[in-house]
């Protein structure tokens, strides 16, 4: 495999690592502080389209290595979409069947993409009046499939699987360290399974304990696919608060307005989770004035066109003749 000519014998050779990192792109027009350099790490440049390639690949390889899948036994996984899309494409390319369990609030584009990628789809109703500890309906239904039909399904369970953390410790962290030549001062991330923040911070903090890790989370009752706020973190066993300096809670609607600004001012076709991270980063940039920050941008905007139009009403007008 040759990353300079980019000729590959299989799509899996394109998966990221220190020698083949996802790009860091500097934010220019939207960053008001000249002494604070801000980079976006474009995770949508991964071969299956999002940051979730890293965890999905690590979890799939682990199941293979332990002989947990193969023959009649495939995969069942709860997902808000991207892990499922990565896992489905990877699993099908390696000959395994996969069932994805998604909450109904997941954008329609992602549900269709899951089917296109070859997953059998279960859609569960959203929590209507949640109680603490009740757990996410999609996680519970996936667990039910895995327990009731153990001969048919293995469940990687991204919310509890240490391989999710390890993937970022092994790839995302070292990539950022090398790409910034060790000069990174601030890391900005969103919280979903918490695999990204835990794995990346763990690596970077080993290199330089002074690096500030700032997590952003959407306000309660939010509609930012893939993210969780603190009230929802109970189901994330990978959440390690000791690796995070600050958690900023941000009105989720800003995820959409900031994503649009990225699209229209930086040429970065970024999705709403990136918008939320940018908003958090800009608050810190204006406070701290100096530094080199890296924002991990999980996904681009294409799967969220419907959600963008829902929250930015101007986008829905003038679409008919």
């Amino acid at each position: 495999m040759n990353h300079s000519t980019r000729v590959y014998e299989s799509v899996f050779e394109m998966l990221p690592g220190e020698e083949n990192p996802t790009p860091l792109v500097r934010i220019n027009r939207l960053n008001p502080e000249p002494a604070f350099t801000l980079y976006a790490k474009l995770e949508w440049m991964n071969p299956f389209g999002s940051v979730k390639d890293r965890a999905a690949w690590a979890m799939l390889r682990d199941l293979e290595a332990r002989g947990e899948i193969g023959g009649l036994r495939g995969i069942v996984e709860p997902t808000s979409g991207n892990t499922g899309i990565s896992l489905a494409a990877m699993a099908r390319a390696r000959g395994y069947h996969i069932r994805a369990v998604v909450p109904n609030r997941v954008p329609r584009e992602k549900k269709i993409l899951l089917k296109i990628a070859g997953a059998e789809l279960d859609v569960v109703s959203d929590e209507l009046c949640p109680a603490p500890g009740l757990g996410d309906g999609s996680i519970n239904l996936a667990k039910t499939h895995a327990r009731a039909q153990a001969a048919k399904y293995a469940m990687p369970n991204q919310y509890e699987n240490e391989k999710n953390v390890e993937a970022h410790f092994r790839t995302t962290g070292p990539e950022i360290w090398r790409q910034t030549e060790g000069r990174i001062t601030h890391l900005f991330v969103s919280l979903g399974t918490c695999g990204t923040v835990t794995g990346t911070s763990r690596f970077l903090r080993q290199k330089n304990p002074a690096i500030k890790v700032i997590a952003v989370q959407p306000s309660e009752g939010h509609d930012v696919p893939g993210l969780r706020n603190v009230a929802q973190l109970a189901s994330c066993k990978l959440f390690d608060p000791t690796l995070i300096d600050e958690i900023l809670e941000i009105d989720f609607r800003l995820a959409y307005t900031r994503a649009l600004e990225l699209c229209q001012n930086e040429g970065l076709l970024a999705g709403p989770s990136c918008g939320l991270i940018l908003e958090g980063a800009l608050r810190i940039v204006q406070r701290d004035k100096n530094g080199l920050g890296v924002m991990i941008f999980p996904d681009n905007v294409f799967k969220y066109a419907t959600n963008m139009a829902k929250h930015l009403p101007g986008l829905s007008s003038g679409l008919e003749p």
Partner: peptide, 30 residues
């Protein structure tokens, strides 16, 4: 709650009612 098909014409509560959400009665393990 969002997405429910069974709904009403007006929001609010019955006069004199006390608010005690159902989940007040349960532990995190259910």
């Amino acid at each position: 709650p969002p997405g429910m098909t069974e709904t009403a014409q007006r929001g609010g509560h019955i006069p004199g009612a006390k608010s005690v959400p159902w989940s007040t009665a349960v532990n995190p393990d259910g």
